[in-house]
Design a protein around this nucleic acid. Structure first.
Lengths: 244, 244
DNA sequence: CTCATCGTTCGGCGCTCGCCGAACTGTGTG
DNA sequence: CACACAGTTCGGCGAGCGCCGAACGATGAG
């Protein structure tokens, strides 16, 4: 079926075909919905995703097969359940970047009160796969920058004091594979960068572990607890009002 | 035609639809080929792209209409020509990231000598939209890092000496909009990060302006000149052999 | 003016692909 | 063992979309 065309070298054509194939995986509304749901970093079962997207189980099964074959998802079978999650942080970053590119267009105008509530909860605080985003993520990033722990003026990197700050928190930063210690991730509600990478993930895990924040609802939204407000205020000087 | 489905809030559905719509633009082999060709950072005419992709002019015209409407391309009409280029650095980054995700799969195995030549020229040096990539890009990035001008261990940012080095080169770095001064871009042949962002673009422009390198062929490949080898050796201590 | 060239619009063809329900396999439960 | 439930496979339907050629405007060259 690969019609031989003039004009390009076959390597250029292969590159285009690969790019198109990857994009095709995301180019379906149902599959896109799966990927966005999975941005919460947790593993979902096939049935949960099917219900979430409002399609038949058979349809969801076919979609998951394609996403796994395409390397975007990793699966883990347990008994009669098929758990599926984003393949790695790289894929999560790609989905986030694509979603961020879309956001400006789809400027949010919620229709019902219920959605308005959900929308503002997501705007207050949420996770991008494994790090904090929303106003919460921005506040933390700004605070780190203001304290000289994170440098944004010439790129995006922790300072030496920043590394020590994480050590002091009891969260040593160990570099794994090619993932950078600090990376900027663009927030689609605030339109400003927040901390991602190894440090962003470590901080988010610490915040969930120690109860600074808890997940609300079944998706990405998180809520800062009273204890969390105290800790963020003490450690980073973040005013609780900033987070409301 | 938007069938009302249960399960998700309508805002989540809208987000998924937007994401799918964006990906759909890239999910066609012909349009993907356009985007990859445009990664050279230059403006192409509709006819050039049609010939390059091996499709009829009418087909190319329809594709360009979609890409422009989707915000991925910017167009400029001059007389009877329609010049088109990537909308901005953000779009270029997105296309690069997607292409990099594909590359590991499509491990290159060139078929003809001609393609092998083109392939290795691309591997030696090329541009990603507006900055240097390939072995050339990696060599420059490594040299900057080794000299303490760029910091990669805790993120990706220029040091203060790095900023001064660019000033000394006669290429002041001015921050425009939200684009970061330094950003890591993953190279799909070397699988390692190279310098992008304002600094990467400035360095690339300087290299082309001063004749350190010149474009070869009609796409992204660039070649280091003898003068360029001298300059890179003097300024950054890059051994010419590294670039061959 | 005449002609060539660049680009767009339109109609029609054919393929791909997402969707479902029904039938089936495999796993845990009572 | 019977039964409920998670997930998969298959056949078939319908819509969407990429492709082309032909006809048509618009621009620039001779």
């Amino acid at each position: 079926m690969t019609s031989s065309r003039p004009g390009r070298t076959s390597s250029a054509r292969a590159e285009a075909a690969g790019l198109a194939a990857l994009a095709s995986l995301v180019a379906d509304e149902t599959r896109a919905g799966f990927l966005l749901a999975l941005l919460d970093g947790r593993a979902w079962t096939a049935g949960e995703l099917a219900r979430h997207a409002g399609v038949a189980a058979s349809t969801a099964s076919e979609h998951l097969g394609k996403l796994v074959a395409g390397g975007l998802l990793a699966e883990e079978r347990q008994g009669r359940h098929r758990y599926v999650r984003l393949a790695d942080a790289r894929v999560a970053q790609l989905v986030e970047d694509l979603a961020a590119q879309v956001a400006p267009t789809a400027a949010v105008r919620p229709r019902t009160l219920r959605e308005a509530g959900a929308g503002s909860a997501m705007a207050r605080g949420r996770t991008c796969y494994d790090h904090l985003a929303g106003r919460l993520g921005i506040a933390v990033t700004d605070a780190l920058t203001g304290l000289g722990l994170l440098r944004q003026d010439t790129g995006f990197a922790l300072t030496d004091e920043g590394v020590r700050w994480f050590d002091g928190l009891g969260v040593p930063l160990v570099r794994t594979g090619r993932r950078p210690i600090a990376r900027a991730c663009l927030d689609w509600t605030e339109r400003r960068p927040h901390l991602a990478g190894v440090a962003g993930a470590a901080l988010c895990r610490h915040a969930l572990d120690t109860g600074w924040c808890v997940r609300i609802g079944s998706e990405r939204a998180v809520k800062v607890t009273a204890e969390g407000e105290r800790a963020l205020s003490e450690l980073l000087g973040i005013q609780p009002e900033t987070l409301h």
